[in-house]
Design a binder for these strands. Structure first.
Length: 353
DNA sequence: GTGATTTGACCAGT
DNA sequence: ACTGGTCAAATCAC
């Protein structure tokens, strides 16, 4: 992403600006006269909404200013040496998982697919080859010994591939050095309508972003993550930490930008009841290509508008070295949602090569 | 019986 | 030629 071209930069700027505008529109919407029935409680909610929107807007401002001040930012953000070798043509080079994507026939060119990796540590005593449940339903379709690797790599695809044509796949490889560590490489995005039961973001979070997750029934997981850049905001390190016993870090992604519009990805919160999950907004308002605006929603059982708006975390990015940060002080977590951290931050950095 | 996993073979990219 | 990724028949588990 270092070499973000002017065109990409412009796109990013546009997206940021658009995101900001949309947030303002949302602000206007929320300021619509409140019905008389809702009184004090709603006004306190209004305040919360106001505060959230302010934060979102300020994040956009921040991102925009960072982008304007750009070149320097670039150098520091990237790296993540442990990211899967991607662009340069590495082992995983072409990845694809989608031979059939091209209708299985003539179009052989492997389409570069966005890919991101995280490392998950399982508790030493826990079952080997644990499910590493990330909330999605995966079906194993292959396993292969990899040259130079002690352990075979497992290949999984979304169980809903056949039914819904979901092309998401992942590869799971145990680390040679530390058998309790699994490197999971996600490829493609989920297009299925099955909300995850747990938290791993099945969409590429920008590099350096960290997060935490819970597996519903697996062993405690902890994700290992390359150290964040020094100059980053305090929010960098922990994006979501809903349960103390595990953490998941999405490490990197190789994105190919033909896949910007990952508007419908979903990710969930650790919730045994599966009631709570986050949804990458798929609305036309939020689906602009280069940024994503994710809204965490209360699940089906918690469907009040207020809860749905409890969190809107916006990370404008995709462009390159720029970063957008959205903090969220969860004054009003959706009902049923428990936060280990009061201050949840979502920090994203650009992720174009 | 149905669906998931295993595993050897095949294919594409380098 | 070699390696990673996928296919698909055989096998396993529920």
């Amino acid at each position: 992403m270092e070499n973000m071209g002017d065109w990409e930069k412009m796109n990013l700027l546009n997206e940021l600006i658009q995101g900001k505008e949309l947030t303002k529109q949302l602000q206007d919407q929320l300021h619509l006269p409140v019905s008389s029935s809702s009184s004090s409680s709603s006004s306190s909610r209004d305040q919360t909404h106001e505060m959230l929107i302010h934060r979102i807007l300020s994040s956009y401002d921040k991102a925009l200013s960072m982008l304007n001040a750009e070149p320097p930012v670039g150098g520091c953000l990237r790296r993540l040496s442990e990211s899967p070798p991607s662009l340069g043509g590495s082992p995983m080079s072409g990845g694809d998982s989608d031979r059939d994507l091209n209708d299985g026939s003539t179009q052989r060119k492997r389409k570069a697919i966005q890919r991101w990796t995280k490392q998950v540590r399982v508790a030493p005593g826990s079952e080997l080859e644990g499910p590493l449940d990330d909330g999605f339903s995966w079906r194993k379709y292959g396993q292969k010994d990899i040259l130079g690797a002690k352990y075979p790599r497992g290949y999984y695809r979304c169980s809903h591939r056949n039914v819904q044509g979901c092309l998401a796949t992942k590869q799971v490889q145990r680390s040679d050095d530390d058998p309790t560590v699994f490197e999971i490489t996600y490829r493609g995005r989920h297009t299925c309508n099955h909300p995850p039961a747990a938290v791993v973001p099945p969409f590429p979070l920008p590099e350096n972003q960290t997060g935490s997750s819970a597996s519903l029934d697996g062993p405690p997981l902890q994700i290992i993550q390359p150290q964040p850049e020094q100059n980053q905001t305090q929010s960098q390190d922990v994006a979501f930490d809903f349960r103390g016993d595990l953490a998941v870090i999405t490490q990197n992604l190789d994105s190919n930008n033909d896949d910007h519009n990952q508007s419908s990805s979903m990710f969930g919160f650790p919730s045994a009841s599966d009631n709570i999950f986050g949804v990458m907004s798929n609305s036309s308002h939020f689906s602009s290509t280069s940024h994503f605006l994710s809204s965490f929603q209360a699940g089906p059982n918690l469907g009040s508008t207020e809860s749905e708006l409890a969190m809107i975390v916006s990370a404008a990015t995709s462009g390159n070295n720029s970063r957008a940060t959205a903090h969220l002080d969860s004054d009003l977590p959706p009902r049923g949602m428990e936060f280990a951290n009061e201050d949840i931050s979502f920090d994203s950095t650009g992720f174009f090569p």
